[in-house]
Design a protein around this nucleic acid. Structure first.
Length: 300
DNA sequence: ATGTCCCAGTCTCTGGGA
């Protein structure tokens, strides 16, 4: 079973790229973020023709999360079960003019469904903008809400995957330059503590579990040649509960998908392979590597 | 090096967000 997460930075702008990547990587489940679509505009039919169900939770102009699955999707939950978010395309109410009123739960940042016996949660954490700002405080509240949702709704031994754009680097190894990033969001102690609190529920960083090397990132700023110089951060994560973490056999970040043309997302997909007990899906590490190599590097 | 990309509305430019 192959699972993946990708902040696509507008599904409308990235539809073709996503379709190509599905054909190339053949994930069973792909979590997507920043679709920037309303549910009414979600491209259910195009993905259906490729064999994927699309579960979508959006608000229009900003944010928006989804789950693409070719192994079914049921028991959908959005916004932590707290009810609808506002429609950011609706006009009035769009602007967060009063910073103190910033409420990340008014935004489409969480959708969940059960696919192939595993509960998947597609997450788009608030950016936080500036350390110490009201938006930063809202970001930390959002992580607290996520932890509480786990505590209140999920069994500790259940198969679970929390994936998405967490907008936080777990550790200094996940940053191109801790010195240059110091003082900004994504690297601060409160944010990393929020991630640690999440992991302490019983979650494992599935990519890091099998990929210990430094210098592997999932996001690079569009500006200043950051991608070209590999100056990025690993902020797109797949956090797995113990029963899923035990099945991880391979992981990769597909840097190729960060290249154009056409214009790419500023994030790359993070991919994790899980073994299939009783099925001949993965022949272990080499098998997964060979399969990926055969797919992604067709040399004539 | 405040350097790019995406969105909606003010609509071939601007402002906001990342």
């Amino acid at each position: 079973m192959r699972i993946a997460t990708w902040n696509v930075n507008s599904l409308k702008a990235r539809q073709e790229a996503v379709e190509k990547w599905l054909a190339k990587a053949e994930p069973d489940v792909l979590l997507v973020q920043e679709t920037k679509l309303s549910d009414a505009d979600a491209p259910v039919m195009p993905f259906s023709m490729l064999g994927y169900d699309l579960v979508h939770h959006g608000e229009g102009r900003w944010n928006g999360v989804g789950i693409l699955s070719r192994i079914g999707a049921s028991d959908v939950v959005s916004n932590f079960g707290d009810g609808p978010v506002r429609d950011s395309s609706a006009g009035s109410g769009l602007m967060v003019s009063e910073e103190d009123d910033f409420n990340p739960f008014d935004e489409a940042r969480m959708v969940s469904a059960v696919c192939g016996g595993i509960r998947f949660v597609s997450l788009y954490a608030p950016n936080g903008r500036v350390v110490g700002s009201p938006f930063f405080a809202g970001k930390l509240r959002w992580f607290e809400r996520l932890r509480r949702w786990l505590d209140e709704t999920q069994a500790a031994d259940a198969p679970l995957v929390l994936g998405g754009d967490f907008n936080v680097t777990p550790a200094d190894e996940d940053v191109w330059s801790p010195a240059r990033a110091h003082g900004g969001t994504h690297v601060s102690e409160p944010e990393r503590e929020a991630l640690a609190v999440l992991r302490s529920w019983g979650l494992v960083d599935a990519y890091r579990a099998v990929r210990p090397e430094r210098g592997r990132f999932s996001w690079w700023d569009y500006r200043a040649g950051m991608f070209h110089r590999n100056e990025g951060m690993r902020i797109d994560l797949l956090y797995a509960s113990a029963p899923v973490a035990a099945r991880v056999v391979w992981a990769e970040i597909d840097r190729e998908a960060r290249k154009g043309p056409p214009t790419p997302s500023d994030h790359a997909p993070v991919v994790v392979d899980l073994d299939e007990p009783g099925k001949a899906f993965d022949a272990g590490w080499e098998g997964a590597l060979a399969r990926i190599a055969a797919r992604t590097k067709p040399r004539p």
